[in-house]
């Protein structure tokens, strides 16, 4: 699905990631943890080609990102659902239109019943007509997850998806991610919430990766 081979990334002020090699296998569930500023978000941006590595190779769906045109990048992103901590919507459009945005930009017309089912699955069935600024943090995160999965992507990348949520809402979002993984989706969640990771490991066979000293390590029992 997504492979990093000896990848480094330099922001200009020093190297943030170095010698990163990793493969996200189909159907796998990974957590990526590490302190703030360690490079979790940068890693995710490299994984959906918002950033290009300064060294090494990032391969997405068997294609090296450096060889992708801008149109290729757009088409690739239709196969990757992304959920950000500071999720962004088009505030002038109702929630349902925002969730259906990936379908719209790809020229597909989804079944309205599927959209309704999806909103109900994330617990937002009654809020389809609401505007994004009217939603709470938890509702926005769940809406972002719905938008991320509406195209039936192969991979879902979530960057601190529970960062602004209370524990109950975090568990609810985690349950949705686990359900998606059981449907065969490849999941990568960047989080510094170790309680969430411990809880998830009771539900799914998740690997935990940690960024330390610019490199990615497989975390063990010290979690």
């Amino acid at each position: 699905m997504i492979a990093f081979d000896n990848v480094a990334y330099n922001y200009g002020g020093g190297e943030l990631l170095s010698e990163v090699s990793l493969r996200l296998a189909p159907g796998s569930f990974h957590f990526l943890t590490g302190p703030s500023g360690a490079g979790k978000t940068t890693f995710l941006k490299l994984a959906y080609a918002e950033l290009l590595p300064t060294a090494g190779r990032v391969t997405i769906f068997d294609r090296e990102v450096r060889g992708l045109t801008r149109d290729d990048v757009a088409l690739t992103r239709r196969r990757i659902g992304v959920v950000h901590q500071d999720v962004q919507f088009l505030d002038h459009l109702p929630l349902a239109a925002n969730v259906a945005m990936p379908l719209m930009v790809s020229g597909r017309t989804g079944d309205p019943r599927d959209l309704t089912d999806l909103l109900q699955w994330v617990g937002l069935g009654q809020l389809g007509d609401a505007l994004p600024p009217q939603l709470s943090g938890g509702e926005r995160q769940r809406a972002a997850l719905a938008r991320a999965v509406i195209m039936g992507p192969d991979v879902i990348l979530a960057d601190e998806p529970t960062g602004n949520l209370d524990w109950e809402m975090s568990l609810r979002l985690l349950t949705l991610l686990v359900e998606l993984n059981k449907m065969g989706k490849t999941i990568l969640v960047a989080t510094h919430d170790l309680n969430l990771i411990r809880t998830a490991k009771n539900q799914v066979a998740a690997r935990v990766l940690r960024i330390r000293n610019r490199r990615i390590q497989l975390a063990g029992a010290d979690l």
């Binding site: 801008r70 149109d71 992103r77 992304v82 945005m101």
Partner: peptide, 16 residues
Amino acid sequence: AQVIRVLRIVGAQDDY
């Protein structure tokens, strides 16, 4: 700019 960023993230091509 935010609208454009959101559209790029959800897979919109430049032409669109």
